[in-house]
Write a protein that binds this DNA or RNA. Structure first.
Length: 183
DNA sequence: TGCACGATGAAC
DNA sequence: TTCATCGTGCAC
């Protein structure tokens, strides 16, 4: 498996988001590698993006979004679920890609359609916030599966408060994949 | 120090 | 359509 390194993440957020589709999310715990194929993502561009956590500037919560690319930004949502993002572009940019759904590949149990369920099934929690994705515990790798995929772009989910940014097509998923969270 | 609310998911 | 559940950010 070819692990994605920092140059992959240090690029335009939309390009990273689209390229993440079909890649493998790997989380190693207790000698077991849990693997899921990424089938749905959303791009959060930076402080100018009103739907992004970085839109109000750096805070203790979102500081890893402003750190170097290739790290995990993981936060608690609604007091119940975790959501995982990968930080993109140069340090200080404040952009990231939210992983919304994966297709189970290995050692993944339970539902994976939706950012909260994805983290639960992959055993990803807030302790991994800020984790370096170029390490050996939590990382993303290119798949052996070279079959072409068709990418669909839609408005993001759950950001109705974001004004002009609500309708931007920054949600991407693999067409016809049954593990995408919504149509 | 208090409080309104959220990049969700599941039940009703 | 409503609710669970709690950390975060901002008002007071």
């Amino acid at each position: 498996m070819q692990k994605l390194l920092q140059p992959f993440y240090d690029r335009d957020t939309v390009l990273v988001a689209r390229d993440l589709l079909g890649k493998l999310l790997v989380h190693k715990t207790a000698g077991k590698a849990r693997i899921g194929k990424i089938v749905e993502v959303e791009a959060y561009l930076g402080p100018h993006d009103r739907a992004s956590h970085s839109s109000k500037g750096p805070t203790p919560r979102n500081q890893v979004m402003f750190g170097p690319p290739g790290r995990a930004y993981i936060y608690l949502i609604y007091g119940i679920y975790c959501c995982m993002n990968v930080v993109t572009e140069a340090p200080g940019h404040g952009s990231a890609v939210l992983l919304r759904a994966v297709e189970p590949v290995q050692h993944v149990t339970g539902r994976t359609q939706g950012p909260g369920l994805l983290c639960k099934a992959m055993h990803i929690d807030r302790l991994l916030n800020g984790h370096d994705l170029t390490g050996d515990t939590l990382y993303i790798a290119a798949s052996f599966d070279a079959r072409p995929i068709t990418i669909v772009a839609k408005p993001r989910v759950g950001v109705a408060y974001a004004g002009d940014w609500v309708q931007k097509p920054l949600r991407f998923y693999i067409r016809d994949n049954p593990y995408v969270s919504r149509k």
